[in-house]
């Protein structure tokens, strides 16, 4: 292991108000396999992480905003370093957006809010995330924009449409009308599906993937070389493997600072495609 730099918190466990068809840990309103975390639990790991020299924090779930103590946890993280929240956005209203803005302004470190869309239009997105979710996510973005927060919006999209597509232009236009004149739109190739990448051809996407392969040639680039995932049930090697018992490495961060054998099938995806969940 290169050393611990990134700490993830599975603050909402596996509980989510959505149930996306592609969710790699099958989160849903009823999946209780991972419990919600308590603020005191997060605080304990944060204090430990500080002594270990951690650089940055990520908060995820499930849906983090289902955790009633999320804001308290974020404030505690932002006293120590930058924090990113990965959310589906559907629970962000005007009041929450204003609260996030106050937290961001109160820290020397960045608070990044990251929302995901699966495609540039409702048809593509809603087929995966559920009916009506495209509009609900855009509504969340408008609350954030009104509060003065410019979220990172990641869009997974079939690769050949990633640059220069009409869909992208339309979405950008809509974001601008919400007051996001500098949208932070990240288009993600559909990395997790091997078939998608093989389908790719045409404009420069091969170049992008070639770049990712290069980075992944180095084990130090794997998330598990510099990050760990904290859950209510202990510390796991990475955000991807929390459903594998053998990926639980200990009860505290210090207990997990050893290399992890890359034997899981998902490790192949990480290695071959440079998969990384960080912003």
């Amino acid at each position: 292991m290169l050393g611990l730099e990134t700490v993830w918190f599975q603050v909402a466990g596996s509980i989510c108000n959505l149930a996306c068809s592609h969710c790699f840990i099958s989160c849903s309103p009823t999946n209780r396999s991972h419990a919600m975390m308590a603020a005191a639990d997060v605080e304990r790991h944060l204090a430990e992480s500080e002594s270990l020299g951690v650089r940055e924090y990520y908060f995820t779930g499930g849906e983090p905003f289902l955790n009633p103590e999320l804001m308290e946890m974020l404030a505690a993280a932002l006293r120590r370093g930058p924090a990113t929240v990965l959310t589906n956005g559907t629970l962000i209203n005007a009041r929450r957006a204003a609260g996030l803005k106050a937290l961001a302004d109160g820290s020397p470190y960045s608070l990044d809010i990251r929302l995901s869309l699966d495609g540039f239009a409702p048809e593509a997105n809603d087929a995966i995330r559920g009916p009506g979710t495209f509009e609900r996510i855009l509504e969340a973005i408008s609350h954030l924009a009104a509060a003065g927060i410019n979220p990172v919006i990641t869009v997974t999209e079939a690769c050949e449409d990633a640059i220069g597509s009409d869909g992208r232009a339309r979405l950008l236009e809509r974001l601008r009308t919400m007051g996001l004149d500098r949208p932070r739109l990240k288009v993600m190739p559909l990395l997790r599906l091997g078939a998608e990448t093989e389908r790719t051809r045409g404009y420069g996407e091969e170049e992008t993937l070639a770049g990712m392969e290069l980075a992944a040639a180095d084990t130090a680039a794997l998330q598990c070389a510099s990050g760990r995932m904290v859950t209510a049930g202990g510390v796991y090697v990475c955000p991807i493997l929390i459903d594998s018992r053998e990926a639980r490495m200990g009860g505290t961060l210090s207990e997990t600072l050893r290399p992890y054998p890359l034997r899981h099938r998902a490790c192949h995806t990480c290695h071959a495609q440079g998969l990384n969940c960080r912003t």
């Binding site: 650089r55 940055e56 960045s110």
Partner: peptide, 17 residues
């Protein structure tokens, strides 16, 4: 290493290491 994304704790560790 950006100003707003580099924690003091991380810097301290780099200096020590």
């Amino acid at each position: 290493l950006w100003a707003s994304s580099t924690s003091d704790a991380y810097l301290r560790r780099l200096l020590d290491e």
